[in-house]
Amino acid sequence: MKARCKQDALFDFINFLYIIAMIVIFAFPLIFIFCASISDQNAVWQGKVWLWPVGPSFAGYKRIFEYKDIWLGYRNTIVYTLSGTLLNVIMTICAAYPISRKDFKAGPALTTFYLATMFFNAGIIPNYLLIKSLGLLDSFWVMILPGAVGVWNVIVTRTFFRSNIPNELREAAAIDGCSNFRLLIKIILPLSSAILAILTLFYGVSHWNAYFNALLYLKTRTRFPLQLILREILIINTSLIDPESLSGSASERQTIVESIKYGVIIVSSLPLLIAYPFVQKHFVKGIMVGSLKG
């Protein structure tokens, strides 16, 4: 009995150390970025900033406010995210509801038709040629049409409909003479707010964070989403930055870009940071629904 208590105490101790280590590993980078964004930049470079801002200075944020491209990118990303997510949710419901109905004859065939694309992807070159021949290159639509439906989300939604909407409800409505459209809009969708929230969040985040399609298909700077502008600031530095949006010589611009890096990270993630604590449980729920095999 005593040996067991000792063992348990050791286990608890190791467990405690592990949890503390994890908290440090996850929290330190986030805290550091926040502190560095409101610290004096020279202090950051000299390594004086660790877990507390040094000589609080909002010069970086002031520069970000004056940086036109960031706000243009911000606006574009908001437009792409809102319109793209709306299209995504509608299309996903259109795809998932019919195949969730066991009495729908074409259901299994359609499911296979959708699922097959998950495993056999033509690759970026044929896709690029397609976008080019459709005349979508460098247009607004190229940011929302190519990813209009995600197969995985369709499957999650189908599973939700099957497991959460009792079949009797549909049958009762059908006997009362309710058409399929009315059934979907008046009965099923109001009962599906959980899955609608999950879909909106998953699609919304992926639009907010996407850069690959923009990199491939957009050429005009005024259409660039925020992530492409961030790429210039955070990754490739000043060489590609438009001289018109930032004045001064190359080295001055380099200094400015260096000084706004951490602030830009915070500003670009702000909507997610604010929403995250409130919507976190919906994401987790989404994973749970998805892990059920329907």
Binding site: P126, N127, N180
Partner: peptide, 23 residues
């Protein structure tokens, strides 16, 4: 169930254009 077919049409068109045509 003609309404279910109608609902599926835009999705099928999307998959034909953006996933099957590149193949």
């Amino acid at each position: 169930n003609y309404e279910l077919y109608i609902l599926s049409i835009p999705v099928v068109i999307y998959y034909l254009i953006f996933h099957y045509f590149p193949m």
